[in-house]
Nucleic acid binder design. Sequence first.
DNA 1: TACAACGAAATTGTATACCAAAACTTGGAG
DNA 2: CTCCAAGTTTTGGTATACAATTTCGTTGTA
Lengths: 220, 220
Amino acid sequence: MDRLPSAKIRDSLEQRIVEGELGNGKRLDETELSSFYGVSRTPVREALQRLAESGLADHLPRRGTFVRSPSLSQLVEMFEVMAELECMAIRLAARRATANDIDALEKDNETCRAAVAANDTKKYYEVNARLHGRIYQMSGNSFLAIEARRLHDRLRPFRRLQLRVRGRMEESMAEHDIILAALRDGDADLAMETMKKHITIVGVRFNDLVSSFNQIMGDE
Amino acid sequence: MDRLPSAKIRDSLEQRIVEGELGNGKRLDETELSSFYGVSRTPVREALQRLAESGLADHLPRRGTFVRSPSLSQLVEMFEVMAELECMAIRLAARRATANDIDALEKDNETCRAAVAANDTKKYYEVNARLHGRIYQMSGNSFLAIEARRLHDRLRPFRRLQLRVRGRMEESMAEHDIILAALRDGDADLAMETMKKHITIVGVRFNDLVSSFNQIMGDE
DNA sequence: TACAACGAAATTGTATACCAAAACTTGGAG
DNA sequence: CTCCAAGTTTTGGTATACAATTTCGTTGTA
């Protein structure tokens, strides 16, 4: 699998954006990026076009391309949609999951729990993402899986908002437990209900959210 | 609003794809397109990158860019997700709709009904799209509105599948009526339930679907 | 100081020419 | 007919040039 430089650049930029290295309206200078990646402007421009198309950047004609960090209200909207997609995935997964699938989830969940105990947030995020990705796959709807993963990735830098709230990490683990148990029982309704609560940030007090948000975004 | 040539080409290609002019794995030749649009290869290549990113085309390294027509199973998956998004939109809209909003919907619905009576399918599709778009807006979640519209557009050439089935058009109108009435009553549950039925193609018999699909796609 | 106008510098968008690498085509040879 | 090799085509990318704008800095003025 020999990917093209332009595709690699696109992915690298995506990663650097969602990891926060390039944040908050940062200008993506074509010549600067071409020297950074050691290529000419052409592949860089193509990468930027694709970033803009996928919504991670904003392209203003003859002005430049800028990292698009969603506003707080857009962020809430995105989480609202994410909750719906996760809900849908778990509902389908509850119908289609095999014992093997659920075992794999349990395993991830235990790894997650260990990460919480060890206070290893990096590990937690990583395994958590894998767990949710597994659920998307288990839904049996590959289009849903792709879209959910895309949105999940895009929300990654903001997901920690959910965990800033005191005790949220333990609560989150408890929700995972309930969801997995519901999956084993084939109780789609309980799984959905818990998942919606699990994802949504509506329950987070608005002030907490705004302050965390400003911390992440650099406040200005 | 002076758009760039590359953006215009991208949109033109998108339109030509969803309208069916460029269908089913059609190769998008860079030099051919550049002479067609009277520009050099550069802006064409950028337009193709964006098309591929948005999922309307497939980009195979060093082989070319091809119109991506979803397989039948992918199509079912996409409609499944579409139903979920529409459901979500109508649920939110039921909470937030003003009398004015609903009046506008009623007006579109009447225009729709007239189009059905006159057997004017083109008009029907157009107004139907406007009506659904209005519901997305009414959800108050602009991110949902954008995503729903994007998927709606991508499914446009296949939406007629739903209407191929005998009597589906009248049934569809009846569903619109129920949804609007439910909106007026603030009955989100009824609106959602009807909307889900309205969008989903699961109810369509599989054979009907396959044969219609093959007709559209050129069968081969 | 504040500010408006003007011009220089920088950046984007496209054109053009060119080339390497990979894929496709074609024309036998067996 | 199948297989293989040479030639052709197409893509991905470099380098360069240049028009269209935007941005920035400076100057002149109130």
